[in-house]
């Protein structure tokens, strides 16, 4: 989908973010208080709204072109949806690494969509900025892969049932006015034999809908899914490039990248703030393989694992670098 046909005009190298930002201490404290019954759900909601407002304000101030709400109200990218959808149960703790655990959802019945899950947050975020705000969803393949399944007969059946649920949420976002919608599929790069299922499920989500779609994929075996991944029916691939030192470009060299690319140019798993020169170098390298008009710039992944200060510094570095490059390339 052409952005201009949707009424959206963006500058060269549009700057955006993958989705999540670090939560301030006020939210961590409020969540603890909510869990112990000290504050109400509504009081927690107000704290999350205030944190969202501050992140939108920051993005406005530094000149981000496509804004995100920062996901102050979400914990885990799958659990947030699973906890709100019929057909899921909240599972017990499962180890992620070291001494870190998360609650992995369980599909125990037919999944369905009853009401919007993210629309009011999108509307709130959009009311605070004149820039377009991305609708942010987790894709059906990733929700399937990161959940247990006790109901459907196969992984395919589960993913396709979830695709119908995600589609309903996309339709609700579009009805509310969202024109740019990101559907994250980070799981799709690890089980390469199921790429066709990712394509099929994403098609079921996006087919014939009037929006500009992105998908975010990270930390997987890209060499094995490229160029097949280009069949995923979205307009823009948001990929972590800097974590692997732009090694993905070797794939693009063999087979041109044919869609728009949101290129991650800062690493979200390091405290170090990249220098202006590093980011310039990464963007220049990428620009050799992707037409300039197809290139967006953002961090590798969600910034929620960084401190607030680090996340802001990384975003500022991106924006300042891009502003300078725009002068050169115009």
């Amino acid at each position: 989908m052409n952005l201009e046909s949707l009424g959206i005009k963006l500058p060269l190298f549009p700057v955006s973010s993958v989705g999540s930002f670090p939560k301030p201490l006020s939210i961590k404290k409020a969540r603890a208080q909510f869990c112990s019954g000290e504050i109400s759900e509504n009081e927690l909601f107000e704290v999350e709204k205030e944190a969202t407002r501050k992140w939108i304000e920051f993005q406005n101030d530094i000149g981000i072109d496509v804004v995100v709400d920062g996901e102050m109200y979400r914990g885990d990218m799958v659990a947030y949806f699973a906890e709100r959808l019929p057909g899921f149960e909240v599972g017990g703790f499962v180890r992620s690494y070291g001494n870190r655990y998360y609650r992995k959802p369980i599909v125990t019945g037919k999944v369905s969509w009853e009401k919007p899950l993210t629309v009011s947050w999108w509307e709130y975020a959009q009311s605070l900025t004149k820039k377009p705000v991305k609708g942010m969803l987790t894709g059906p393949y990733t929700i399937m892969d990161w959940s247990f399944n006790e109901y459907y007969n196969s992984r395919r059946d589960t993913a396709l049932a979830l695709a119908q649920v995600v589609r309903r949420e996309v339709e609700a976002l579009i009805a509310a006015g969202a024109r740019i919608i990101q559907i994250d599929e980070p799981a799709c790069s690890v089980r390469t034999d199921e790429l066709s299922l990712v394509v099929e499920a994403m098609d079921a989500v996006t087919r014939d809908l009037s929006a500009y779609f992105l998908t975010h994929i990270c930390y997987g075996d890209f060499e094995k899914i490229y160029p097949g991944m280009l069949d995923i029916p979205v307009d823009n691939f948001d990929l972590e490039m800097s974590n692997s030192d732009n090694s993905l470009l070797t794939c693009f060299k063999k087979q041109p990248f044919t869609k728009d690319l949101s290129a991650g140019v800062v690493d979200v798993h390091t405290h170090r703030i990249e220098s202006h020169e590093e980011v310039v170098k990464r963007i220049r390298e990428i620009a050799e393989f992707v037409p300039l008009k197809q290139l967006w710039i953002d961090p590798d992944c969600g910034l929620k694992t960084r401190s607030v200060k680090e996340a802001k510094q990384k975003l500022r570095t991106i924006v300042d670098t891009v502003k300078e490059l725009r002068k050169e390339f115009h």
Partner: peptide
Amino acid sequence: NGLLRFFDTNFYFR
């Protein structure tokens, strides 16, 4: 060193 995904699981090893 740092974390890497263990095959296609959602578990990470050092």
